[in-house]
């Protein structure tokens, strides 16, 4: 039930507690409350749980983490 799904914001409307947006989940578009991610704008990825965005996903962090694992992978491959 703590499942939270990433989706991409297509449009934003409203403000305050009713700030909402159309969010694209791999093709399925749903309306999501965006009041907890005031910094998130069109094009951003958000993490959505129970109809509410609980985080704006940090794409730079995501890429940095992956880069770090890719380095690990090439190091492991070279040694084995």
């Amino acid at each position: 039930m703590c499942l939270a799904v990433p989706g991409r914001i297509r449009s934003v409307s409203g403000e305050g507690l009713t700030r909402a947006g159309e969010v694209d989940f791999a093709g399925a578009v749903q309306t999501v409350n965006l009041s907890f991610v005031p910094e998130a704008a069109e094009g951003d990825y958000v993490l959505v749980h129970a109809g509410v965005a609980i985080a704006r996903l940090d794409e730079e962090e995501a890429l940095a983490t992956l880069e770090c694992f890719r380095q690990l992978e090439s190091a492991v491959r070279e040694e084995t």
């Binding site: 990433p6 990825y45 996903l57 794409e59 995501a62 890429l63 983490t65 992956l66 694992f69 890719r70 690990l72 992978e73 492991v76 491959r77 084995t80």
Partner: peptide, 20 residues
């Protein structure tokens, strides 16, 4: 997110398992 598929990449999974 651009990296979602990569987060299931078997090569990365195996490398992490090896490091563990």
């Amino acid at each position: 997110m651009t990296g979602l598929a990569a987060l299931r990449d078997p090569a990365l999974v195996l490398a992490l398992a090896e490091e563990i």
